[in-house]
């Protein structure tokens, strides 16, 4: 009956840190601001102010956001009793980096510069190590089985010259890895989070690939096992018009995400709407653990909330900078936990 997992300090600390999350009100205030500069001014009144010196110029909000995220992730990593939880959260960023580097390697011609600006420092493996490994083609030191996945995906490219196939291989590796880590952690909410992430990725994939006009067998190979919704169920979606999707997966929580899509005629728009609803769906999976004072899930929930906050900020600030209509921005904003 003694909470033996030792998460009391970490969860309490994160709950206090969560007070600084931009709540719905602050997000709405940012959203309501008329211009980009007034939004930036509002942002500089929040705790993001401490990263102002990181900005390279007036418009460089990306440095603000990523400094904050980096800080939060490293803090969380240092206080989390089980490091595998933050590692799990960071894995998708590693794979993002790998995708960027692999694509860069296979599409680059001549002396064109590398797209380092697309890399994120949020991964487990430092950007420098990754670049070095890819540059020198020496993958031996990469952790998480990356040493096998990376060369493999490059050889897939050699054989097929199809970027989709490479992505497929990398995604499969990512979710395999996430699943195995989540299994080893033995924490219910973490496993659920991974399953929800897989659901979200699968549904996204189906919609995307149907739009590309791929046939069902091909699509099947892009789906990952281990979500709440089985592969078979997902494949039923392929021949169904979008309106019917919610009904087909009706038994799963993800149906909520689908039912929120209002406009099915415009696939581009429904894809962005879907992205938003799927994020909300993943957020919802972690919701119940918020009320448990000792639940390790709170660590993941906090990181995820921070990630969502960063997404929201990017949506608003990019929108403001490009004079996007307010209502469009509004439609993209994710729920804050």
């Amino acid at each position: 009956m003694i909470p033996k997992n030792g998460y009391t300090y970490a969860v309490s600390r994160l709950k206090a840190m969560a007070n600084r999350l931009l709540d719905n009100n602050s997000i709405i205030r940012l959203w309501e601001s008329e211009t980009f500069s007034s939004a930036m001014k509002l942002l500089s009144e929040t705790h993001y102010a401490q990263w102002l010196s990181e900005m390279k110029n007036e418009n460089d909000f990306e440095s603000l956001i990523s400094s904050e995220l980096n800080y939060v992730v490293s803090e969380t990593r240092s206080i989390s009793p089980d490091k595998r939880i933050p590692i799990l959260f960071q894995l998708p960023f590693d794979f993002h980096n790998i995708k960027v580097l692999v694509k860069d390697k296979i599409t680059r011609t001549g002396n064109q510069g590398r797209r380092i600006d697309l890399l994120t420092s949020l991964g487990n493996v430092s950007v420098e190590d990754l670049i070095l490994a890819v540059e020198s083609e020496d993958y031996r030191l990469l952790p998480f089985g990356l040493h096998a996945v990376l060369p493999e995906s490059l050889s897939i490219w050699e054989q097929s010259h199809d970027v989709l196939m490479v992505e497929k291989r990398l995604d499969a590796a990512l979710f395999e890895l996430m699943k195995s880590i989540a299994e080893s952690i033995e924490i219910e909410g973490v496993k659920k989070w991974v399953r929800a992430k897989i659901d979200a990725e699968n549904i996204r994939n189906v919609l995307r690939l149907v739009r590309f006009g791929l046939e069902i067998g091909k699509i099947s190979s892009f789906l990952h096992e281990g979500g709440f919704i089985s592969k078979e169920k997902l494949l039923l979606l392929v021949n169904e018009p979008l309106e019917g999707w919610g009904r087909l997966v009706g038994f799963a929580d993800a149906a909520m995400a689908l039912s929120e899509i209002t406009d099915f005629s415009d696939t581009e728009k429904s894809l962005t709407e879907l992205e938003k609803s799927l994020d909300d769906y993943v957020t919802g999976v972690l919701g119940p653990y918020r009320y448990d004072a000792f639940a390790p899930e709170n660590i993941l929930a906090f990181l995820w909330a921070k990630d969502i906050e960063a997404k929201n900020l990017r949506i608003i600030l990019v929108g403001k900078a490009n004079d996007v209509d307010k209502d469009v921005i509004r439609g993209l904003l994710r729920n804050v936990l």
Partner: peptide, 17 residues
């Protein structure tokens, strides 16, 4: 044990505030 648990939580809160 009780005071210890509460203290851990307290330390977490006070780190931030």
């Amino acid at each position: 044990i009780g005071v210890g648990i509460a203290g851990e939580a307290g330390a977490g809160i006070m780190t931030e505030d």
